[in-house]
Amino acid sequence: MKKFLFSAPLKERTLFLLSWASPVIIVFLWETYCRFGLIGPEILPPPSTVLLAAITLTKNGALLPDLGVSLTRAATGWCIGASIGFLLGLIVGFSSIAKAVLDRSIQMLRAVPFLALLPLVIVWFGVGEGQKIFLVALGVSFPVYINTTLGIRQLDPKLLEMGSTQRLTTYETIRRIIFPGALPSILMGVRYSLATAWLALVIAETIGASAGIGFLALDAREFLQTDVIVLTIVIYAVIGVCADAVARFLERRLLAWHPNYAPKGC
């Protein structure tokens, strides 16, 4: 019994360490291959050089402001897109009239890969901030919209009936049944939208920017600074991972009741 109690967390820790082992090994191999000249620095600089580039750029004050600019764009675009998607999702989820009026058009728009709209967006907004924020917002709004309507539509009607026999007001029904019931789906949309936000930003910034991580990459391309280019890729990756971690954290916090997200042994 005692052994069992202690072995459970230990096993989890082992799995956790194991999950980090392969990335570490890959970075290690990458470094050794570069050191022994198997990969030329103009193709792929070793991780240590990339790290050095990060330190240099941070010290001379080039990196952080650009990072700030990119994050601000992503955050602004995400907030706008998520609000629009969520509101439309709520309206369409609740009202069958709104669904009849809006849903088909939105689904048709969604069928267009939003990056295909890029030339049009550039014509509308130029290559300024507007174009980037618009593109992010556009990419974000669809997954949030779809998962919000889905969450509301998948609600168990039996629970709504129960709410009505308990004489809940409309507000109480939304707050205690509809919203929490749709939340797993909504959060899935949020998680997905963070990924699209990031993708949209990378594309938008590569089209033309005078600041931001994408600008850094473009600038580095001009001078064949592969270390900076790789650094920007790593930064995009790290921020993507962080965004996903935030979404997972939200899921764990808000969906503690859900068997799929329940803390172990509870």
Binding site: K158, E161, M162, T165, Q166, E172, R176, I177, P180, W257
Partner: peptide, 25 residues
């Protein structure tokens, strides 16, 4: 007077703890 229903399934809200479920309404 008021009316209350117990269905064949419990119909508890999975996202609320027991006392919140009971206090519903």
């Amino acid at each position: 007077g008021t009316l209350a229903v117990v269905f064949q399934e419990h119909r508890l809200l999975p996202w609320e703890n027991l006392w919140r479920n009971v206090s519903l309404g």
